[in-house]
């Protein structure tokens, strides 16, 4: 997705001379061509996340369209107040691109695990939160971001993530993307877990369960109608994300269900990272499996609930 990000940004920057790319001393071998082509519209602020975020806000306040790119964990936690006060509070249309969402940097350890960022960013008024599930969704959100005109957080995974969507998609911020329809249950998945959720859905289908699948790149504003459509039909609802179970997609979907519990009481279970720091070292696949987020474990857990 990082590759999609820089390629799309480069194309857009050729057309729109207000677009800028700001980095916080990260992205070696990614931005050199952009820097060469656009000169002062590329800025490396250094290892200084506070100034990195506020600098972006100042650029936006004076009419530029800054894309500020940094590692998720450092940007969203170290500079959380700058994001809240200089970007959100003042409605400065900065696009924050966070690389390394979830366990993208798994073996680097908990300092680099980004599993609180969705909670942090969705809590901020005026912020929109999008976690593209694959390069196709990433490209789509990039094109919308240019003239979005509001603070926008885009959470991406690694440099290269698998392409999941084999067809063109109708991508709108705030709308879930229907991938499979099912009569018994619906899985809502966000971000880099998309390919794993697709596999889990396939396993369940083979085992005779009719389970729908929606990619839900936008966590805020949540697609209320997509959730209610499943709830109205009495389907069980599952959420899948590489993020803490506190404050992520699961809670966003859960709030919609809670508000409508009197009308549509449904079975609901969220799959995510429990409230903990990873207890051991491991690759992304290892940690996902440890927390029950691998396709096999997701399918087993959902099968058990559906009986």
């Amino acid at each position: 997705m990082r590759t999609t990000f820089i390629n799309t940004l480069t194309e857009m920057a050729r057309i729109d001379d207000k677009i800028m790319c700001i980095i916080g001393d990260t992205g070696f071998s990614v931005f050199e061509d952009f820097e060469k082509e656009f000169g002062p519209r590329f800025v490396n602020v250094g290892i200084a996340e506070q100034n990195f975020v506020s600098f972006g806000a100042g650029l936006a306040a004076m009419g530029m369209k800054p894309y500020i790119y940094n590692v998720v964990s450092f940007m969203t936690l170290r500079a959380a107040e700058q994001i809240m006060l200089d970007i959100c509070y003042q409605e400065n249309p900065v696009v924050l691109v966070g690389v390394g969402g979830g366990f993208a940097y798994a073996t680097a350890g908990p300092t680099h695990h980004a599993i609180q960022d969705i909670a942090m960013m969705t809590a901020l008024p005026n912020m929109t939160v999008v976690c593209p599930g694959d390069p196709v969704e990433m490209k789509a959100v990039m094109h919308i971001s240019k003239d979005y005109g509001k603070p926008l957080y885009i959470r991406i995974g690694r440099s290269v993530d698998p392409v999941v969507h084999q067809r063109t998609i109708d991508f709108q911020i705030g709308q879930a993307i229907r991938m499979k329809e099912g009569t018994q249950a619906t899985i809502f998945v966000t971000g880099v877990m998309l390919s794993e959720a697709v596999k889990a859905q396939e396993i369940l289908e083979k085992r005779g369960f009719s389970v729908g699948l929606y990619s839900m790149p936008t966590v805020k504003p949540i697609d209320v109608e997509a959730v209610l459509e499943s709830a109205r039909a009495g389907k069980a609802i599952f959420t899948v994300e590489e993020h803490s179970v506190i404050g992520g997609l699961g809670d966003a979907v859960g709030r919609v269900l809670l508000d409508n519990m009197d009308k549509y009481p449904v079975v609901f279970r969220k799959f995510g990272v429990p409230d903990s720091f990873a207890p051991v070292t491991g690759t992304r696949d290892y940690l996902d499996d440890l927390y029950g987020l691998s396709a096999g474990k997701l399918a087993d857990a959902i099968e058990q609930i559906l009986g």
Partner: peptide, 23 residues
């Protein structure tokens, strides 16, 4: 600029000054 938490003005000021210059 909205203010209230300290240590923001000089940073946002950098962004405004830089944006003025390149435009």
């Amino acid at each position: 600029m909205s203010a209230g938490s300290l240590g923001h003005g000089s940073c946002v000021g950098c962004g405004m000054a830089y944006a003025k210059r390149i435009q």
